[in-house]
């Protein structure tokens, strides 16, 4: 398997696809830093404990640019690294040659998955390092140890999330004979999760708990609760919740309604959570993403092993 892993890794690193994605990622990271630096003065108040993390989470309407960018970027790299893993081998005539070598069939798919994951990790870590490094240079405030921990957790979560997209793309590359089909299906699914899952969640919530001007705070809370629950079918939302909580220690609950109530009641933002508590908060999200990735990988693994190599 090591041989396959090494070759796939070399293939990825030498490919144009990788070069393009990497340039894109670097540009976006630099842009994110510049945007953050422009706005950081307004965002940092005297009581701010986590100045360094602000570089990553600073708000530029409507979403923190960096988080928005990375939540789009990761699925795209994941898909780009996996969508033609198996079917391109088949169409190029390499697959039957490869399978007639004395290797276990599963080591092909394992090697490919791990190589894609390694490239993905490399990209994620580089992007975070670029943003962090540039930010450090410009604002001159070093991260404290908790911020570092949070960033490491953020990187790991992002890699796991990317692993899910790689596994999904490999699943389609096993299932569809043409690389173009598997890419389109992967992208379509991503767009569904990214855009439509939230809309559907909203529609369902509004159907269950209709809101109007006279609705009580409780009704709002229930509506939002339903929206949240439904939108969690989308791994994009799971990941979004996880990274927002990781990088914004002030978030004490993933439920915006609860946050809203507590802010209203207490009249101010709560004290920031410590790292362990934030981790506890996002643990279900992370486990769900891991489970989704494992399921996708398991299905593609089984399909690939069972797939008959047929005479054409």
């Amino acid at each position: 398997m090591y041989a396959i892993f090494r070759k796939e890794l070399a293939d990825h690193l030498e490919s144009k696809r990788f070069a393009i994605l990497f340039i894109l990622a670097t540009l976006a990271a630099v842009f994110a830093v510049l945007l953050a630096v422009q706005n950081i003065r307004g965002a940092v108040t005297s009581s701010s404990e986590f100045v360094f993390l602000k570089i990553f989470t600073i708000s530029s309407e409507p979403l923190p640019f960096f988080l928005f960018f990375i939540s789009i970027f990761i699925p795209i790299i994941g898909i780009a690294l996996g969508f033609d893993a198996v079917n391109s081998e088949r169409t190029s005539g390499n697959l039957s040659r490869l399978l007639s070598q004395p290797i276990y069939r599963d080591s092909i798919i394992n090697g490919k998955f791990l190589a894609s994951l390694a490239v993905l990790s490399f990209m994620v870590v580089s992007v975070i390092a670029i943003v962090g490094g540039l930010g450090l240079r410009i604002i001159g405030v070093p991260p404290n140890s908790e911020e570092v921990l949070r960033l490491v957790a953020f990187a790991l979560t992002s890699i796991i999330y990317g692993g899910f997209w790689v596994a999904l793309a490999i699943l389609f590359s096993v299932s569809f004979d043409r690389a173009a089909t598997s890419m389109l299906v992967s992208l379509a699914l991503w767009i569904f999760f990214f855009l439509f899952a939230s809309m559907i969640a909203e529609a369902i919530a509004n159907a269950r708990v209709p809101l109007d001007q006279n609705s009580s705070l409780e009704m709002f809370a229930r509506n939002i609760e339903i929206q949240r629950m439904v939108s969690r079918i989308s791994p994009c939302n799971l990941y979004g919740e996880a990274i927002v909580a990781l990088l914004t220690p002030e978030i004490a609950s993933l439920n915006p309604a609860l946050m809203m109530i507590s802010v209203t009641v207490a009249g101010k933002m709560l004290t920031p959570l410590n790292f362990g508590q934030s981790l506890l908060l996002i643990w279900p999200q992370v486990v769900s993403i891991v489970a989704l990735a494992a399921i996708c990988f398991a299905i593609s693994y089984i399909r690939f092993i069972k797939q008959e190599i047929r005479a054409i």
Binding site: A3, K7, D11, S92, G93, R97, P102
Partner: peptide, 26 residues
């Protein structure tokens, strides 16, 4: 050894690199 009817190689690698990969797999 099996030479399939529609044999394919990794187009981006050289002839020698393709054989090296096979040797490594063996």
């Amino acid at each position: 050894g099996y030479l399939p009817e529609k044999v394919g190689f990794y187009e981006d690698l050289t002839a020698r690199q393709n054989l090296e990969y096979t040797a490594e797999l063996n």
